[in-house]
Design a binder for these strands. Structure first.
Lengths: 215, 215
DNA sequence: TCGGTAAGCTGACGTCATGACAGGACAAGT
DNA sequence: ACTTGTCCTGTCATGACGTCAGCTTACCGA
């Protein structure tokens, strides 16, 4: 399915080529974690990977192109987030647990891929379709499951008719992502990490079910 | 309070100087709206302002420095957001109205300053203290009011003891900001603007009061 | 074993942005 | 007209960008 990996000038990358390619991606990832996106230069990535800038341009059209590649790998990983909601109940104590585990899992995922997700978010906010589709791809699994959960409760009459499941689910997922990105900001507001999570879970539970959780 | 405007090399800027300085800021603002942050170059800003790069460097150390300046102006504007909550009630129908107006006002503000806020968000997420303090400054007025509202309801026993007012308020404000930045993404999820707002207001109301609104 | 071929890498180069400086242009007061 | 201080720009060294030709390396079939 995934056609062979190709260089910019059309050659097929072999064993060695794929290795350097991956090394460049890894180094780019590290650079993104340690310096502002705006200051990440091809020449630095290449140096860190022990190769030359020309080599970088053999595999990627530019920094952005390489970033998209990394984000693609993260997106594949993100599909696994759906498991956090697979077959979970939103009723009673189980519902509270579901909310907590969702928050926990989501925050972990975001923290782990923090640097790249930041850049994807920026690209999406700037209106770049490629980034914005990637952001969809990353969030779709969770968002879809959450939307389904709300819709199901709504069908059972346990959630108001005028709630738009996708709007609520999307807002909650967006909230989780943004809070994860700005966790440091919360400490300035006098909120510790440990306090943040249960309150987020509360908001998620409230949003999905319309009711306070049973703890 | 705001000491005189100074050039990088220490001279005081006069009438004309301040005008070009402001023009550079305006042009930078426009550039930020029309092209990715990463690609905004000093030379382009200068050209657009009908001046030379050297002039830019007379007033700002670099692009980032100028961005901080713009953000500062926006922050001053953002203080006005507190009005959206000043003396409002969260009880009954009035509470629903308060939530709706908060969402409306906040989204408008964010949309209006969209480009610069995007960059501030990025800087804050990257851990740059200057951006991150600026983000505080912008959100503090709303966040403070919202925290107070939750705390007050809590004092009256209408909100659970184990809710952390600042955590809930911060999460809600962060949600509003992020949703505003990614409104386009919601249309891809089949959610129209008009549908989004009431659902956001619902989430805000639920978060603050713990109850569904009376409509 | 020995070319032949394609993959892989880099030095070198023209182009362009950066950031610093010195000096010219300009407005205002005398 | 002349001085003074503000304001702007031409110019330059430095360094990143992105391309290309060409060298090296690995693989493969005869």
């Amino acid at each position: 399915m995934t056609g062979q990996v190709r260089t910019v000038d059309g050659r097929v990358a072999g064993r060695r080529g794929q290795a350097t390619r991956q090394k460049l991606l890894d180094c780019l990832s590290e650079m993104l974690s340690s310096s502002p996106y705006r200051d990440v230069k091809v020449i630095d990535v290449a140096r860190r990977a022990g190769t030359s800038p020309a080599t970088f341009y053999q595999y990627f059209p530019d920094v952005e192109g390489a970033v998209l590649e990394i984000a693609d790998q993260v997106a594949a990983d993100g599909a696994g987030l759906a498991e956090l909601l697979e077959g979970r109940s939103w009723a009673g104590r189980a519902g509270w647990q579901t909310a907590q585990e969702l928050v926990d899992g989501f925050l972990d995922f975001w923290k782990k891929n923090d640097a790249i997700l930041r850049v994807v978010d920026l690209g999406a906010a700037e209106g770049d379709k490629r980034f914005y589709k990637l952001r969809m791809k990353i969030l779709n699994s969770v968002n879809g499951s959450l939307t389904a959960a709300v819709a199901e409760l709504q069908a059972k009459g346990r959630v108001d008719k005028d709630v738009h499941p996708a709007a609520v689910a999307g807002s909650l997922v967006t909230m989780l992502a943004a809070v994860a990105s700005h966790q440091k900001g919360f400490t300035s507001w006098g909120v510790k990490q440990a306090e943040l999570k249960p309150n987020l879970a509360l908001l998620v539970h409230l949003g999905v079910t319309g009711r306070k959780p049973t703890k």
